[in-house]
C-alpha cells in the first residue's frame, strides 16, 4: 500500500454531502472522488452552488461528509487539524489583533513561547512583504493586504495542505494578478499541496497543475484538465495559443454547467 499511495497527499473517497433543511434534502455533493498528489496545485472551478465550498469545508474538517471520507496521507481525517490550513474569501482576520498578532495566533495556540512565535510570524510577514505593517490593525489595510496577512497566517503554522476558497474573489483585477504571482512564488519556495477554489478560469490556468471542473447540482467532478505549462506563468502567457485553447476548453465545460443551473 505504501508504494501505491506514496504520492497521494489527499484522497477524497466518494464524498457525499446532503444538507437537510426545513424545505427538505439538498444533495450538495454526489459522490466526489479525487486523488491529490503531494505538492500539487489543484484549482476547482464550477458554477456557483455546485458544492465547491462544501467540499473544501469537508477537507478542512469544518463539515462532516454524509458518506465517504477524506484521507490525509492515508489517514482518515476527523475534524480540523493544523496540517490543513485555510484561507477564506472574506479574509477572516481577527480585527482586534494587529497583523503580527494575527499571524502569531496559530503559533500561540500550539503553546509556542512569544519570542519564538514572533520570529516565525515575522518570517512569513516578510514573505508576503508586509513588514512595514506588523503593528497595523486589519481595518487599516486594503483588501489585498488583508489577504496577504491571511496567507501568512495560514503558512505560519506550517500546514502540509493549503485550502483556499476564492481567496482573491473580492479583489480588483490588478491586485489579484499580483497576488497570484506571489502565491505561486511562495508555493515554489515552500512546497505545499494546494486546493484552490476560483470562479476565474484564467486564474485557475495561471495557478494549477490540474483544474477540476465541477458539475452543477448535485455537485460531481465533471472533467479534470492537466495544465502542462512551466511556472512561473506570466501575464504574457495569456496571449499564447496554448493558454487560449485551455481557457476555451475549460470555459466551455464550465459554461455548459452554468446553462444547466439556469434551466
Amino acid at each position: 500500500m505504501a508504494g501505491e499511495t506514496r504520492d497521494i497527499k489527499l484522497k477524497i473517497d466518494h464524498v457525499e454531502k446532503i444538507y437537510e433543511g426545513r424545505t427538505g434534502k439538498m444533495i450538495a455533493l454526489n459522490g466526489v472522488d479525487l486523488d491529490i498528489m503531494e505538492n500539487e496545485f489543484i484549482c476547482v472551478v464550477g458554477p456557483s452552488g455546485c458544492g465547491k465550498s462544501t467540499l473544501l469545508n469537508i477537507i478542512a474538517g469544518l463539515l462532516d461528509a454524509t458518506s465517504g471520507a477524506v484521507y490525509l496521507d492515508g489517514k482518515k481525517i476527523d475534524g480540523t487539524g493544523t496540517e490543513r490550513g485555510v484561507v477564506f474569501q472574506q479574509y477572516a482576520l481577527f480585527p482586534w489583533l494587529t497583523v503580527l498578532k494575527n499571524v502569531m495566533f496559530g503559533l500561540k495556540l500550539k503553546g509556542m513561547p512569544d519570542d519564538e512565535a514572533k520570529e516565525i510570524a515575522m518570517k512569513y510577514i516578510k514573505m508576503v512583504q508586509l513588514e512595514d505593517f506588523v503593528n497595523s490593525y486589519p481595518k487599516e489595510l486594503s483588501g489585498g493586504m488583508k489577504q496577504r496577512v491571511a496567507i501568512a497566517r495560514a503558512y505560519a503554522v506550517q500546514p502540509e495542505v493549503l485550502l483556499m476558497d476564492e481567496p482573491f474573489g473580492a479583489l480588483d483585477a490588478q491586485t489579484r494578478t499580483q497576488l497570484q504571482a506571489e502565491l505561486v512564488r511562495t508555493w515554489q519556495e515552500e512546497k505545499k499541496t494546494c486546493f484552490f477554489i476560483t470562479h476565474d478560469v484564467e486564474e485557475a490556468i495561471i495557478l494549477a497543475n490540474r483544474v477540476i471542473v465541477m458539475s452543477a447540482r448535485p455537485g460531481r467532478i465533471k472533467t479534470i484538465v492537466d495544465i502542462d505549462l512551466p511556472y512561473p506563468r506570466t501575464q504574457d502567457l495569456k496571449m499564447e495559443k496554448q493558454f487560449l485553447d485551455l481557457k476555451a476548453h475549460i470555459w466551455g465545460e464550465v459554461y455548459k454547467e452554468y446553462l444547466e443551473v439556469r434551466k
Binding site: T80, V86, F88, Q90, A92
Partner: peptide, 13 residues
C-alpha cells in the same frame, strides 16, 4: 462572525 470561529478552528483552537 462565523468565519472568525472557523478561522480560529483551523488554526488549532
Amino acid at each position: 462572525d462565523e468565519t472568525l470561529i472557523k478561522a480560529a478552528r483551523v488554526l488549532g483552537a
